[in-house]
Design a protein around this nucleic acid. Structure first.
Length: 860
RNA sequence: GCCUGGGUGGCGGAAUUGGUAGACGCAAGGGACUUAAAAUCCCUCGGUCCUUGAGGCUGUGCGGGUUCAAUUCCCGCCCCAGGCACCA
């Protein structure tokens, strides 16, 4: 037994025990209710960072709590181990990606174990292993056979720094989501996953995920971007053809006075062909194509356009509409053509003013009359239709349906739906990824690798250079193969898959991580464990990873592999870990240890304290988890991460806060050691003992604490308030006068309080709690103990404070028995000395009683 | 611009359905112990006013409203964070 709290000794002792005894190993047990708890698995970048520590601590508390509640908890961990940094490291440090990756995994695994997280390490999964990606290749082939994976020549987003293609979702404000380099466009043959086949289901289920944060669902809905409207045909003058337009505002069709076509749309050159403007149009198209990216990211874009010397007809008015090529219409959205209604669309208005085009008001606002001569901007709100033929006098919103019906009946248009979401481009011209299992044969075309030949192994003998281009394409021994269909010479596909594909099904693999028979996922295990009951991870994956995972789940369901529609029932998005930045006027950003005492370690100049920002290597405002563990131990690190803020909020790092957490554990340790000899052999309370007031009060606090901590963890994941409650219990223990060594009931109350504190702390600081539990004389480890329940009667107060208000203002307090009836509480309130004094000369209008809370006396 | 969140002491944050605003922790100040320091333990700690009290007023971004009672509900505005954005 140790009088002093020695975290390292204790933590290493218990971690060893957990490891050798496989304490957290689980199997499917039909007699127990399952609980699948998952934290987003990390990319093995080298070292764990504070964000990981926070994420995984939150998860571990829930896992340990649920275990104590009797659930069969699946809590796995693995590695998202394909990805670009491994290749960059290979080029920079001349180390093979697989070696680099596996070394990182080994190191990070040690760090995670040192934090005491209760993972079932026997289920560890690493996505760069063939036994993992072979199944992904199988799914790819099945997708190809069903037309859900297809190849097309397309304009792709390309990051020159990462030297790879990016999906639309991976482009953030025109820049690469990973490195921030500006994204350019390139035309390439690419593989796509047909996520759009599931678009309606993905959208519908956004309303069937009550366990997800509202904002994540909103982001996903926005991303899918479904809009209802009409496709309307505008006949071309002097041709049998027509321009098709998508619009959500068919109510304004009578006001459409000209036509806009995206400059990069093929129709533009068709129309201009042979006209006097042909050369100008060519030049304009080239200019827009080049400017496109800049235009799109610029706030102050200029609306440019060029008349194509062509006209089409408004299908309802029959009026001629000039056709313009323009930069502010996108070829990829809708049909790439827009009917322009300058009076009721601001962009069209600006364009019409610039080119002096006709305008017709078709919606009149209720409170004023619009006049095209004097309009300063488009009128975009609701109103009554005018100049709209048979629809005059209708409310424009109600006319949407009527006009759609009318267009359909006339064969001039039909109702359609548009989406913003595009198919998911998954081709990457990289080495360190899962090979796409396809073969290109000159005779047979694209042929899938036969299932029996899977996996297509990623070759080890690769030469990586900074030069760019696909490394696999340069490797003859990989490329050259035989066509499975005709037996002739053929070439392998050299693109690898986007790493988001691996992370779209790893949670399935965790259910049967060693399954080596087709399809690599054991249906019985999946049916037992899936879906994930609680998923925890960063908000930064709100769209990408979560949307892809939902799509992949539906896909595997339709392959008959899995029986669930959605992968994650509950989602908790935790906030980022932030810290103030420190800068030396001469030497730039400084690491915390380089700025001890507020002076730069190199020049001694005063350090400038900057903004608090997300911890990142570039800003050097990082805290090394190893350092934390070395100084305070893992348990203190865990307490701080939980105590400083509720999980969904950003956490601001504070060195003093860590000290405070360490102090709390020491304080708990000390009072425990102080009492241990006296309470070790005291029998637990049987009930019926006569207790002193101090004893009663402490007992009540003990049971109140159980109630509070249970609710905080169970219902809200508010570990900060749960820890506060335990701190209060420890404070109450300090405040309770020490019972005499002969006062057995008194000591039993102390024992109950201390024992409860330890059990309640078990999910939060498992090593600390296990150790004290053992010191108390228990033979069974705490990890196998059930979560305590509280006694309602003991937890309830005997006497309560009633607040006395006059006209809603606090004036006095009285103490009454908890079961005092309304009339006597009111009487006691009116008899209170202060109240009597304040009521002198006033008229009592009403007396309001809120049971167990307050009495409010209304006076005039 | 639109869509989500959010705004509470010197700081991180509490306040579960409208009912004592500021739990718990940090920082700060004071005291005890000590030859001294550290550690520890105890006390004070939103602002303001005076008649210094078991005191008054005021206070949850700002302005209104509903209510006996508003951090909480309603209306309008300001600011911050995240997401989306020539989307027709």
């Amino acid at each position: 037994m140790n009088a002093k709290y020695e975290p390292h000794q204790i933590e290493e002792k218990w971690q060893k025990k957990w490891e050798t005894e496989k304490t957290y190993q689980v199997t499917e047990d039909k007699t127990k209710q399952k609980y699948y708890l998952l934290e987003m698995f990390p990319y093995p970048s080298g070292k764990i960072h504070i964000g990981h520590v926070r994420n995984y601590t939150i998860g571990d508390v829930v896992a340990r709590y649920k275990r104590m509640k009797g659930f069969n908890v699946l809590h796995p961990m693995g590695w998202d181990s394909f990805g670009l940094p491994a290749e960059n490291a290979a080029i920079e440090h001349k180390i093979h990606p697989s070696k680099w990756t596996n070394e990182n995994i080994n190191h990070m695994k040690k760090q995670l174990k040192r934090m005491g997280f209760s993972y079932d390490w026997d289920r560890e999964v690493s996505t760069c292993e063939p036994k993992y990606y072979r199944w992904e290749q199988l799914f790819f082939i099945w997708m190809y056979e069903k037309g859900l994976a297809y190849k097309k020549r397309s304009m792709v987003n390309f990051c020159s720094k990462c030297d790879t293609v990016l999906a639309n979702e991976q482009v953030e404000g025109g820049a690469c989501w990973r490195c921030g380099t500006e994204v350019t466009e390139k035309i390439l043959e690419q593989w796509f996953f047909k996520i759009t086949s599931y678009i309606d289901e993905l959208l519908e289920y956004c309303d069937k995920l009550p366990g997800w944060p509202e904002r994540v669902l909103t982001m996903q809905k926005n991303w899918i971007g479904k809009s209802y409207g009409c496709e309307i045909s505008f006949p071309l003058v002097g041709s049998k053809e027509a321009i098709k337009v998508f619009t959500t505002r068919q109510d304004t069709i009578f006001g459409a006075t000209f036509m806009l076509v995206a400059a990069e749309h093929p129709l533009v050159m068709e129309l201009a062909k042979g006209k006097s403007v042909e050369k100008d149009v060519e030049r304009f198209v080239e200019k827009v194509k080049k400017q496109d990216k800049l235009m799109r990211t610029s706030e102050y874009y200029d609306k440019e356009g060029l008349f194509l010397e062509s006209y089409c007809l408004n299908p309802v008015t029959g009026k001629q509409m000039p056709i313009f090529a323009t930069n502010f219409v996108l070829a990829e959205y809708g049909t790439g053509c827009v009917m322009a209604v300058p009076t009721h669309d601001q962009r069209d208005f600006e364009f019409a003013k610039k080119f002096n085009l006709p305008m017709i008001v078709v919606i009149q606002p209720p409170n004023k009359t619009l006049n095209v001569e004097t309009m300063k901007e488009a009128y975009v709100d609701e109103g009554i239709l005018v100049h709209s033929g048979p629809f005059d006098g209708m409310e424009n919103m109600k006319a949407l349906d009527a006009i759609a019906d009318y267009l359909e009946s006339q064969g001039k248009g039909k109702r359609t739906i548009q989406y913003r979401l595009r198919d998911w481009g998954i081709s990457r011209q990289r080495y360190w990824g899962a090979p796409i299992p396809m073969i290109n044969c000159d005779k047979c075309g694209i042929v899938p690798v036969p299932e029996k030949d899977l996996p297509v192994l990623l070759p080890e003998d690769i030469v990586l250079s900074a030069g760019g281009g696909s490394p696999l394409a340069a490797l003859q021994s990989f490329v050259e193969t035989i066509c499975p269909k005709c037996g002739g010479k053929a070439a392998r596909e050299t693109d690898t898959m986007d790493t988001f594909v691996e992370s779209s099904w790893y949670f399935d693999r965790f259910c049967s991580p060693h399954c080596d028979t087709k399809p690599g996922l054991d249906r019985q295990a999946l049916d037992y464990w899936m879906p994930v009951d609680q998923y925890i991870g960063g908000i930064e994956h709100a769209i990408l990873h979560l949307l892809y995972s939902r799509f992949y789940t539906k896909l595997l369901r339709d392959f008959g592999i899995i029986g669930v529609d959605e992968p994650f029932v509950n989602l908790l998005t935790q906030g980022m870990v932030c810290k103030e930045t420190m800068k030396c006027p001469e030497h730039g950003y400084l690491f915390p240890e380089q700025a001890a005492d507020g002076k730069c370690h190199r020049c001694g100049k005063d350090v400038i304290i900057g903004k608090t920002e997300k911890m990142s290597k570039s800003l050097k405002n990082v805290i090394d988890p190893d350092y934390l563990i070395k100084t305070y131990g893992a348990d203190t690190a865990r307490v701080f991460c939980l105590f400083a803020a509720p999980p969904e909020k950003d956490l601001e790092w504070s060195d003093q806060g860590v000290d405070g957490s360490f102090r709390f554990l020491n304080r708990t340790w000390r009072i425990f050691m102080d009492y241990i000899e006296d309470i070790k052999n005291v029998a637990p309370l049987a009930g019926g003992e006569t207790l002193s007031d101090d004893g009663k009060n402490l007992r009540r606090k003990t049971h109140q604490t159980i109630r509070k901590v249970t609710i905080d963890i169970e219902d809200r994941f508010h570990f900060n308030t749960a820890i506060s409650a335990i701190m209060e219990l420890i404070n109450a223990l300090y405040a309770t006068p020490r019972p005499a060594a002969t006062d057995k009931p008194g000591l039993a109350v102390i024992r109950e309080a201390l024992e409860t504190a330890i059990i309640l702390l078990a999910p939060i600081v498992p090593h600390f709690a296990e150790e004290l539990w053992e010191v108390l004389g228990h033979e069974k480890p705490l990890s196998g103990i059930g979560w305590p329940s509280f006694d309602k009667t003991i937890a309830s107060e005997e006497e309560i404070t009633i607040v006395l208000q006059i006209n809603g203002k606090l004036r006095s307090r009285i103490t009454v028995a908890v079961d005092e009836d309304e009339e006597s509480v009111k009487a006691a309130a009116l008899a209170d000395e202060k109240i009597i004094a304040l009521l002198a000369g006033k008229n009592v209008v009403k007396v309001i009683y809120v049971p167990k809370k307050l009495v409010n006396i209304v006076v005039k």
